[in-house]
Amino acid sequence: MTTLTTPHHGDIPHESNTIPSTGIDAPVVVGLCAEYDDVTAVLEAAEKVRDAGYRHWDVYSPFPIHGIDAAMGIRPTILPWLVLCMGLTGCVFGISMTAWINAFAITMPKPFDWVNLQGYQFLISGKPIWSIQANIPVIFECTVLFSALTAVFGMLLLNKLPMLYNPLFKLEMFRRATSDRFFIALDAGDARFTHEGAKELLESTGALKIETIED
């Protein structure tokens, strides 16, 4: 899911610079938040926002909602391709590492004969120094390790996590996002965002309450 981006200070209207400084940063409008009380309402609202062409916005829900991806128009993630690439990398890494450690030996010509590139060429149970059978487990585990770490950290990064602060937390009503209410937040950084236009759109979706997000 997309997440609300941090305040765009570059987008502050020019006039705000003329306000005398009080020593505290004046609150900036970073978006609009609308509250809904059931899944169907928030799904329909999400479809409207999607059709209005917004890009920087998100839906907040206490639990996963089936069909929210389609309602929000979220495109398929590129994560599988990252995992595939890193899995193959891990596979190649596993093969190279086992071959390097077990079977590699280079004797450099003089005057570099002090360079001793020699693997641990142990003879175990009369098996070859390096064999695919003995090393498949290592290669497999490297593939899994690379894939799994890419999947976990790729997911976090693509979701812009960890996000330790979000101006939405300042809204009193948003506290119910983890219990029984659903929210749609439009980001002021969106190209289509105007305060009135966004408010009108959210009102047309039948929101219970609409509040301005300030930061």
């Binding site: 149970s125 009369g126 098996k127 059978q133 003995a134 498949i136 487990p137």
Partner: peptide
């Protein structure tokens, strides 16, 4: 299938 083969290949 590989595990069954590999273990017995190794034990020989």
């Amino acid at each position: 299938a590989f595990d069954q083969y590999m273990l017995q290949w190794y034990a020989n």
